[in-house]
Nucleic acid binder design. Structure first.
Lengths: 121, 121
DNA sequence: GTTATACTGAACCATGTGGTTCAGTATATA
DNA sequence: TATATACTGAACCACATGGTTCAGTATAAC
């Protein structure tokens, strides 16, 4: 049985629910960046960007390290795996359900046809 | 180029960031349910559950229909597809990045060995 | 027609979010 | 040593969230 860390899922889906943060992840997938870099790219104050990075960090999607006065942000290892697993599992439940529905519809249709045939006789 | 509906992603990741709501989706993947059913199963007032269902509905993860006095909730069609696509794409960017890193490390390692060999001579 | 059921909406509460400004501290650079 | 850079933290703002209670309305059951 698959077991999820519910609080981590909470944190990471919440982190992904903001377009700026998704942009930051995209950016970091190209290259590491400082807070200043990111703040510039997303037209935001340093403080504002620091908060976003904090959210991503708490969700373990990003790690940071400070060297001298600059804090470098990079993607977290193993990121998005649990999230992808959750979504994939539920996509499967989803489609199983819709397949079942299809079968019922199919069944009703064929019964309908049979009834029509019976009536014609 | 893949194009995402950013505001829908916002809404659906936010909807997924709550364990109760993820539970509701799981429940609905087994069978349709009324607000009362769900409220009972998650030990919550009707009003509270109504709000959660509202969030899921606004994210188009769930649809509802009222017949008489009971509102039946069911999974939305096409749900989670865009979300899965976003996550998968970024998992790929992620691993591409880590692969690149691996190559660099590999390169450094082989250079180290070469240096060591040169020194020994 | 009365009563029970199922939902709905408004209002409230504490806490979190996305952003800001302002006033720092720490580290480079000239 | 003086100055510029890079970040940090506190405090504030308006608004959203996750929950409640209370007072309704609409529909079903007796």
């Amino acid at each position: 049985m698959v077991q999820y860390n519910e609080t981590r899922l909470d944190a990471s889906f919440a982190a992904l629910s903001d377009a700026t943060r998704r942009g930051v992840l995209e950016q970091l997938s190209r290259a590491d960046a400082s807070i200043t870099d990111l703040a510039g790219k997303f037209h935001m104050t340093l403080t504002g960007m620091k908060k976003h990075v904090g959210v991503l960090e708490r969700a373990a999607l990003v790690t940071t390290e400070k060297a001298g006065r600059v804090r470098t942000c990079r993607l977290g290892m193993r990121a998005l795996e649990e999230e992808a697993a959750w979504i994939e599992r539920h996509r499967q439940l989803w489609s199983a359900r819709f397949d079942a529905l299809d079968k019922i519809v199919e069944h009703l249709k064929s019964k309908e046809k049979a009834d029509a045939r019976r009536k014609r006789r």
